[in-house]
Every structure is written in C-alpha cells, then in structure tokens.
Amino acid sequence: MMATRRRPSRWSGGRRFALLTVAPATIILIVLSVFPLLYSLRLSFTDQQLLSLVPPRFVGLANYAQLLQDNLFWSSLGVAAAFALSVVTVQLGVGLALALALYRLPRYQQFIATLLLIPSILSSSVASFQWRSLFDYSSGPLNYFLGLLHLPLLSWTADPRLALPSLLLVDFWQWTPFVTLLLLAGLHALPASVFEAARVDGSSSWQILRYQTLPLLRRVIAITVILRLIGAFKVFDIIYVLTAGGPGSATESLAFYNYVQGFRYFSVGYSAAMSYVSVIIVIVLARVILRYMERPVGRPAADVPVAEAAV
C-alpha cells in the first residue's frame, strides 16, 4: 500500500500544479490564523489593557510568570484537565459498549445510528439550553424522575460538587453518539476472519475483545481520543450557558477563564499569554497522540496488514 500511495518521482512534473492548488488554502489559513497568532504572541509580551488609560508597556515574560502564580489559572487548568480526562474515558467506554451492542444488531443499524447521532449534529448552544431546562430544580424532568424514585432532589449545576459532573453529562449526551459511530465504523472495517479464527481457538468473548478487537481498533481509538480531548479542552458554550463558571469557580475551565480575562476584563496582554499556553498544550497533546498512533502495532508482523485494513 505504501508503494502505490507514494511515488513522488513520477509526479515531479506536477509541482506547479501542486503549488497552485495548495496556495489559496494555505494563504487564507496563514492570513486568518497564523498572523492573528503572531499578533497575540506580541500582545502576550505587553501589559496591554483595552480599557486602561495607562499606556501599554513591553513586559517580556511577566505575563507568563504571573500565570504561574495565578490561583484561578491553575484551578481553571485543573477543571479543564478533569473535564477532558473524564470526557475521554467515560465517552470512550460507553461509546465502545454501545458500538459493540449496535454491531450485534445489523438490522436498522444505520437508521438507529443516525437517530442516535442527532445530539451530535445539534449546535452546542441548543444542547446547553435544553439541558438548562432539564436540570431545573422544581420544574425539570430530571428531578421529577428522582422524585418518582424517592431519591433526594439535586441542584445539578448549582451544587459545587455536582456542577462539573452535570456539565460532563451534557457533553456525554452530545458527543457519545459521535464516539459510538466512529468506533462502529472502525468495527466494520475489521476483517471478520480474525474473530472467526479466534472463536475456533475457543477464546472467550472477553479475550477476543481484549486481544483482538481493541488492538486492531487502536488507530480509530486514538483519533477518537484526539477529537474528544481537544473538543473537551475547548469547551466553552455549555459553561457559558449553564454555569457561567460557577458555583464559585468550580466549572471555570481554561477556555472560559481565558475568555473572562480577554473579553470581560479586557486584559488582552494577559489573556494572550494564556491563549499561548493553551495552544501549546493542545498542539503537544495532538502530536503525542498522533505519534503514538503512527507507531507500528507492537504485535507480530502478520497483524500489520489487518491494522492497515482498518485505515
């Protein structure tokens, strides 16, 4: 496969064509993303305040140093990390279970999958508003159901211990179907022969899952992890609509705190420094996971073509 895919020598004559076709997209992306980023970088070395009468000064790395001492920054980083980690593990776990279940039900599978996908194709502000009304203490359906079961009613987003889990629930609702579908597609790309052979061996279902299915799905899983990790790291809309970062700063994630500093307090220099830290975190994360994914599967060579088939 590698051989048919990449034969640059034959394509040398296409250089002009390649340049012309890749240039418009690249130029647009550079103008609209890279230069704003460079501009932010410059801002991050100043103490610029949009609404201060004090003229801005160049302060070097002072903003970055201040970040290290900023309790709210650390707590927001903690919230972001806790959120991202829970999102990835829970959604991957439940998504995998659902994908395996759906895989067993070939009839109407595509229809059910599309139906379940509706939460993922709604805008996150729509999702947040629906959940705001679902979470309502006295008139929300969730507490109504708890009441039917004679369980104590919950304050959901207003309870300091429950606020972050409540947001996780919303994100879980919105994105687990998407994760399920990715994994389901990954399952379908696996060759049936592997499992049939294993079954003849007398392996148990769990063994097949653990030693056959999961390793083969590694690539899909890695991509899912990247997508959800980064989605979770960027999460903003549901916080904005559901908790505004509260109670206290219990749900103030890095993206939200960055927004508060930049767009509510207009400390644009400080906020730019924080943006940089988050961009770096995201890029490093993506690189690490991509690299892990690119590594050949650590199993006998016979498995490699199978892994490729999943691609």
Binding site: T26, I30, P36
Partner: peptide, 29 residues
C-alpha cells in the same frame, strides 16, 4: 521529490509577507 525545502520556504515566506501586510497593518493601526 521536487518540491524541495528551498522552494517551500520561499513560497511560505512570500505568502507570509502578503498576509502580514494585510493582517498586521490593518489590525495594529
């Protein structure tokens, strides 16, 4: 592989300058 590092760099730096004129010029002012 004909799309060598030099031409790539030149290409990127040219588009960079064009972009800079657009993005920085306007915004900074």
């Amino acid at each position: 592989m004909q799309v060598g590092p030099i031409s790539r760099r030149r290409f990127l730096s040219t588009s960079a300058k064009a972009g800079a004129a657009l993005a920085m010029g306007g915004a900074v002012t």
